[in-house]
Each structure stands twice: as structure tokens, then as C-alpha cells.
């Protein structure tokens, strides 16, 4: 199981980003290997259709579930079509907090 969520910077103490598709970084966390990985969101400055392309990016990275404060309707539809789960999280938390909350017991 691998999750991903938007991060405002590429470090665990950074806050999560309020935006989904246009965030600066994505944090990937693999429950199996317990590995945390940050990837810069190279798609964020696209003129349109960014949500769709980010959904594809998630699928290409083998993500099972995406967590975000809010999803655009097109991003959410596409994630669902690509069989990726979506879950809402509250803003104001750090990357580490989100990982700790989602770490399997």
C-alpha cells in the first residue's frame, strides 16, 4: 500500500499543501518498505487539465490512495477511474503528522 499527498516543501517537518494538483511537492509513503519519498510536482504550472495529469502521475507512481485537503472534480473522477482511492485530510498538519496518522499499527 502506497499513499501520496501534497507537501509545501520536500521535508517531513513541512506543512502539507492546501492544493492538490498544483502543489509544489508530493510526498509518497510506502507502508511496506516504510520509505518516505518526495517528488517535485513538475505538472503544477500547466494552463489546464493539471488535475487529470496529476492523477495519471499518481497511477504511474503506483499510488493506491491519495490524501488531500480538497480535490478538483476532474482530478477526483480520474483518480477513481484509475482505481486510486481518495481521502480528505484537514489542513495545517505537517508531512510527518500525516505519515504518523496513516502508519499501520
Amino acid at each position: 500500500m502506497k499513499i501520496a499527498f501534497p507537501a509545501s516543501a520536500n521535508k517531513p517537518e513541512a506543512l502539507i499543501d492546501e492544493r492538490f494538483a498544483r502543489c509544489p511537492f508530493f510526498c509518497f509513503y510506502d507502508f511496506g518498505t516504510q520509505q518516505i519519498e518526495f517528488k517535485e510536482n513538475m505538472l503544477r504550472n500547466g494552463a489546464g487539465g493539471v488535475g487529470l495529469q496529476v492523477a495519471e502521475f499518481m497511477a504511474n507512481n503506483g499510488v493506491d490512495k491519495v490524501l488531500a485537503v480538497e480535490f478538483g472534480p476532474k482530478a477526483k473522477d480520474t483518480l477513481t477511474k484509475l482505481r486510486i482511492g481518495t481521502e480528505s485530510i484537514t489542513s495545517g498538519k505537517t508531512v510527518q503528522q500525516i505519515i504518523d496518522e496513516n502508519r499501520p499499527a
Binding site: 494552463a47 489546464g48 487539465g49 487529470l52 497511477a59 476532474k74 477511474k81 484509475l82 482505481r83
Partner: peptide
């Protein structure tokens, strides 16, 4: 030019978003 196509070859998934 409008990022309207989503493609995922391993899943044999390709679709045009009519909205975009």
C-alpha cells in the same frame, strides 16, 4: 494542447476528458 488525454498503458487505460 489542453492536457485532455489521460493514459495508463499497463492498465490499457486511455481516455479523452470531454470537459477539457
Amino acid at each position: 494542447a489542453f492536457n485532455a488525454i489521460v493514459m495508463l498503458p499497463p492498465a490499457k487505460f486511455i481516455e479523452v476528458s470531454a470537459d477539457m
